[in-house]
């Protein structure tokens, strides 16, 4: 069936050719999402991220100054290229107003942690109190056996104090997940909504 006349005229170029492919780095991303506060919007966002096989590390949602508009801060570990795709698809959702990956943009981030620490002795109580003061935290609940500590800060600060409190014995812990916001100066012009 194949008419092979003509194949003799074809000159071979050496070796196969390849497209350059981009490899993404896997790392933690912080994505800010402004959403219309509609039913199911959280489920849509979670479905989309889970659909890429990624786990949400932390997520915080709260109202903004605008009525009916909430801000979400999502932390997710993933490949840069896939996260870029996630961001584009989040933008496509009907209920999202603004989506931004702020990982590489100057930003402020805060998290609040409540930790219940085992403090049965006077010495333990003194030491915990000192640590809490250094980190400008607060003791928000006291019992004969425990102190409950509240600290706010960025990831490094929170990790540092938890490291220091660990040896006393942590009985319970609750973290809010990060909230984050782009710094007003150093606006990167290349970022689009």
């Amino acid at each position: 069936m194949a008419d092979t006349a003509g194949s003799s005229q074809i000159t071979v170029k050496k070796g196969p050719k390849f497209r350059e492919t981009r490899k993404g780095q896997v790392r933690k991303h912080i994505i800010n999402v402004l959403v219309r506060n509609e039913i199911g919007v959280l489920a849509r966002i979670a479905t989309l991220i889970a659909g890429k096989g990624y786990n949400i590390e932390s997520l915080s949602v709260g109202e903004t100054h605008e009525k009916g508009v909430s801000r979400m801060t999502i932390e997710v570990i993933g490949d840069d290229i896939v996260i870029d795709q996630v961001v584009k698809q989040l933008r496509k959702l009907i209920d999202t107003l603004k989506v931004r990956d702020i990982t590489d943009v100057p930003h402020v981030e805060r998290e609040l942690v409540l930790v219940k620490v085992h403090t049965p002795t006077a010495r333990a109580r003194d030491e915990v109190l000192r640590i809490v003061e250094i980190f400008r935290g607060k003791i928000v609940d006291v019992s004969p056996e425990t102190y409950t500590v509240e600290v706010t800060g960025d990831e490094d600060k929170i990790n540092a104090i938890l490291e220091l409190l660990k040896p006393f014995g942590i009985k319970e812990m609750a973290r809010t997940g990060k909230v984050a916001m782009r710094r007003e100066l150093f606006v990167d012009e290349n970022l689009q909504d």
Binding site: P16, K17, F18, R19, E20, T21, Q85, K88, Q89, R91, K92
Partner: peptide, 22 residues
């Protein structure tokens, strides 16, 4: 994919930003 149009420059026109460079 890495042998698709291996020497070509690519222009991509699409209504869907999420389709581009996917």
């Amino acid at each position: 994919v890495d042998e698709f149009a291996p020497e070509a420059k690519i222009i991509h026109i699409d209504i869907d930003p999420a389709s581009i460079s996917k």
